[in-house]
Design a protein around this nucleic acid. Structure first.
Length: 630
DNA sequence: AGAGCCCCAA
């Protein structure tokens, strides 16, 4: 029996749902030989089938060859493009359709808005919005929901809000879209308010609404609220939903509760690649990078195929562990898995090689990237700064702008770091001017980098001026201004800022105390230094690292408290590094304490028998002792 | 035809 066009269309539909491209092509051949190719229903079904099977070329060819097209054909080709990542082309078809006199319907508008949203193409989005108003689709619930999403993705929260508020009818999807727009635009509190409002309005809260609420808690790092929403999820029975589980893992990680995150992950009945990515990311974000890499191995053993995001998370862990070997192994897996073309993967590789000190490999990855963005340029600039090639960093900063990329806050911060390490005040001032022009100077990362740059260039007044004008401050920028004061010999000012910072509710960390100790070292108040050192463990729940010890040893040494310094070294809870003994040796030489100096030298040479500095300092001590005796 | 989870540069 000869198949009619109805059976052919439903056969194509089946292929579409199963992504069965070969079978689809056979049916296409049958359609041509039976002479059904001219019917628009058949053509539309072919376009949809090819699109879902990932063959955009065939979908486009069918569309081009159609003798008659209807609105549905245009919708099909537009969504075929979006589905296969060709969003600009989708918008081109949208324009051509209009030019050929077809009236877009609600489906067309939704597809076009989706393309605008993923491209963050706000001008085009506004144009589509105007066309929607003109065609009277503004009150259509699905179209309006798409508008909310588009404005949210384009960073226009106000517009998303006003579309949402004017909607005559909303459902749970509209509410979730609005919550998501809030999360994407730094208004997580508003998202949580919407979540409560949904309950008051008796709108059903499904897994997506819960995921949006969890996302808001993650951004706020609000563990208490997160626990409450977790409880509600259990109550409503959404606990076993994979996406909800993934969002829970992420939320607990961002709230710094690795315990909770691991518990959720362990109990998940189903896991997908994203679940693994989430737990790997959470471990490396919570200074458990080794564990992150173990999970990466475990994931592969369990048969999951790592994707671009997996590689990015694993490379981040290698970078913070400075584990070059593992990083290279993962680089191999990336090439093998065909992910080396992805921009985020390339950027993560640059970062990893940079942190591991192999600038040349970072450069190779950068040079081979087919496609670059501001982030990859910035990563390369940062890698140069880190590896003491600040000049190259500034070259790249210029080159990137010649290539048409506008620096953002992070790029500016990297370039300013380069100036700081070169103590290049003039270049720093030039970049400062550029940040003002780009309206970036108030952003925390930029202002912090400015404070740091001026501090290192010896211009404390400018550093203070930038700091005083910052609209928002975080711990890092407080540390930067305290370090700038300490570095420039303004110890008292540093300590005053430290007190002020605590009054503003900031808890000091290890870096704060390092600067404070440096400040004491300049003003020479030994007792204050001892006090700060002790208070780290006694009042602030911190542990001292070698740098803190070195700083205090230096202060004791300068003040001539050599016995204290030596006792202090002997009491150190870790293995004594050579430089600790060298510091003592140096001060012994200055103060002419021959006996202690020889002891320090013996320790230094014990841990590093070929250390030239130790020999030089020791011979200085002998020489001075000789002079004194003579 | 609409909403959601993991992700690169300080």
């Amino acid at each position: 029996m000869k198949p009619n066009h109805v059976t052919l269309v439903s056969a194509l539909d089946a292929c579409k749902n199963k992504a069965a491209l070969e079978k689809g092509r056979q049916i296409h051949a049958a359609i041509v030989s039976e002479g059904y190719g001219g019917q628009s229903v058949v053509g539309n079904a072919l376009i949809n089938m090819y699109a879902k099977c990932g063959s955009l070329d065939s979908a486009r060819n069918v569309f081009m060859g159609m003798p008659r097209r209807d609105v549905i054909s245009w919708n099909a080709v537009i969504s075929a493009c979006t589905l296969n990542g060709h969003r600009e082309e989708a918008l081109d078809f949208f324009d051509r359709m209009h030019g050929e006199g077809f009236k877009p319907d609600e489906v067309t508008f939704v597809c076009a808005l989706d393309a605008c949203a993923s491209l963050a193409a706000i001008e085009k989005g506004i144009e589509v919005h105007a066309a929607i108003v003109e065609s009277g689709y503004e009150d259509h619930m699905i179209v309006a929901t798409s508008l909310v999403k588009m404005y949210g993705k384009c960073g226009k929260l106000d517009d998303a809000r006003s579309v949402f508020n004017r909607m005559p009818k909303r459902n749970k999807i509209s509410w979730s879209a609005m919550m998501s727009a809030c999360n994407q635009n730094a208004c997580p509190k508003e998202a949580l308010n919407l979540f409560t409002e949904m309950q008051h309005n008796r709108i059903e809260q499904d897994q997506v609404a819960f995921v949006c609420a969890l996302d808001a808690c993650a951004i706020l790092a609000d563990l208490e609220q997160g626990h409450k929403i977790h409880a509600a999820i259990v109550r409503e029975g959404y606990e076993d939903h994979v996406v909800v589980g993934n969002a829970l893992v992420n939320m607990y990680g961002k709230c710094r509760s690795l315990e909770d995150a691991r518990n959720v992950f362990q109990r998940m009945p189903y896991r997908d690649v994203i679940s693994w990515n989430a737990i790997i990311a959470v471990c490396s974000q919570n200074v458990q990078s080794r564990l992150a890499l173990d999970l990466y191995d475990q994931m592969r053993r369990e048969g999951f195929k790592p994707g671009a995001v997996t590689f990015v998370c694993a490379l981040e862990a290698c970078a913070s562990l400075v584990d070059l070997e593992k990083g290279q192994e993962i680089h191999g897996a990336i090439v093998h898995g065909g992910c080396d073309g992805e921009i985020i993967v390339g950027t993560a590789l640059i970062n990893m090689y940079g942190k591991c000190g192999i600038l040349e490999d970072a450069r190779n990855v950068f040079n081979r990237m087919v496609c670059r963005d501001v982030v990859s340029w910035s990563a390369m600039i940062a890698a140069c700064v880190l590896n003491n090639d600040a000049k190259k960093a500034l070259d790249l900063f210029n080159q990137m702008q010649c290539n048409g990329f506008m620096p953002d806050q992070f790029t500016f911060a990297c370039a300013l770091d380069a100036c700081a390490s070169l103590a290049a005040l003039e270049k720093g001032q030039e970049i400062h001017a550029a940040t003002i022009k780009a309206q970036c100077e108030g952003q925390v990362v930029v202002a912090t980098a400015l404070v740091n740059m001026y501090g290192k260039c010896g211009s404390l007044e400018d550093a203070r001026n930038v700091f005083d004008h910052m609209p928002h401050r975080n711990l890092v920028c407080w540390n930067a201004i305290i370090a700038a004061c300490a570095r420039n010999g303004h110890g008292i000012e540093a300590i005053e800022l430290f007190k002020h910072m605590q009054c503003c509710g900031f808890k000091p960390d290890g870096a704060t105390f390092l600067s404070l100790l440096a400040a004491c070292s300049h003003s020479g108040t030994v007792d204050e230094a001892r006090h700060f050192f002790k208070s780290m463990t006694e009042h602030h729940g911190l542990t001292q690292n070698v740098e803190h010890y070195l700083c205090l040893i230096d202060i004791l040494g300068r003040a001539g408290h050599l016995k204290d310094a030596e006792d202090f070294i002997n009491d150190m809870p870790y293995e004594k590094e050579t430089r600790v003994w060298l510091s003592l040796l140096w001060h012994c030489q200055i103060h002419g304490d021959m006996e202690r100096g020889i002891r320090a030298a013996r320790h230094a040479l014990n841990s590093d028998p070929r250390n030239a500095t130790a020999y030089v300092l020791l011979s200085n001590i002998y020489a001075e002792a000789g002079t004194r005796e003579a």
